[in-house]
Simulated scan of single mutants.
Amino acid sequence: MAMANQPLPREGATTRNAGTFAPPGQPVFRGFNRLGLWTLYMKEVRRFFKVQTQTIWAPAVTTLLYLMIFTLALGGGANGGRMVLGVNFASFVAPGLIAMGMINNAFANSSFSLLGGKIQGTIVDYLMPPISTGELMTALVGAAVTRAVLVGLAVAGAMLLWPGVSLKIAHPWAVVWFGLMGSILLAIVGVLTSIWAEKFDHNAAVTNFVITPLSMLSGTFYVIDNLAPAFQAVSRLNPIFYVISGFRFGFLGQSDIGDTNMAVLHGAIGLGVVNVALGALLYWLLKSGWKLKN
Score class of each variant (00 low, 15 high):
V191A: 06
I269P: 05
S111H: 03
A13M: 14
G77R: 07
E11F: 14
N109D: 15
E44R: 02
G96A: 10
F107N: 06
A108Q: 14
N203R: 14
N294E: 11
M1P: 12
G267C: 09
F89E: 03
G289V: 05
A90D: 03
I211R: 06
L153M: 08
G19S: 14
A58Q: 12
V87M: 02
S288R: 15
R47I: 08
G96L: 04
L237Q: 06
Q6P: 00
N226F: 03
R47C: 02
V175R: 07
V84S: 12
A263Y: 03
S288Y: 08
M83E: 14
F200L: 11
K291T: 03
V273G: 14
A22S: 07
L160P: 01
L161C: 08
A144C: 02
M181S: 13
I269W: 11
D125K: 06
F209H: 03
D225G: 14
N17I: 08
L140D: 05
A233G: 04
G152F: 00
M216Q: 13
S215Q: 06
G36I: 05
G36E: 15
P172Y: 03
Q232Y: 04
S288N: 15
P7H: 14
T207H: 07
M42V: 15
F32N: 13
V273R: 13
F241A: 01
V155W: 01
M42E: 12
A4G: 08
G101S: 04
I244F: 08
F89N: 01
L281C: 10
G258W: 00
N109C: 13
I269L: 12
V149P: 05
L72N: 09
S110E: 01
A106F: 00
A106N: 00
A18H: 13
I244V: 15
Q54W: 08
P239M: 12
M137A: 10
L153Y: 01
M42I: 15
L186Y: 11
G267T: 04
F49P: 00
T138K: 15
M216V: 09
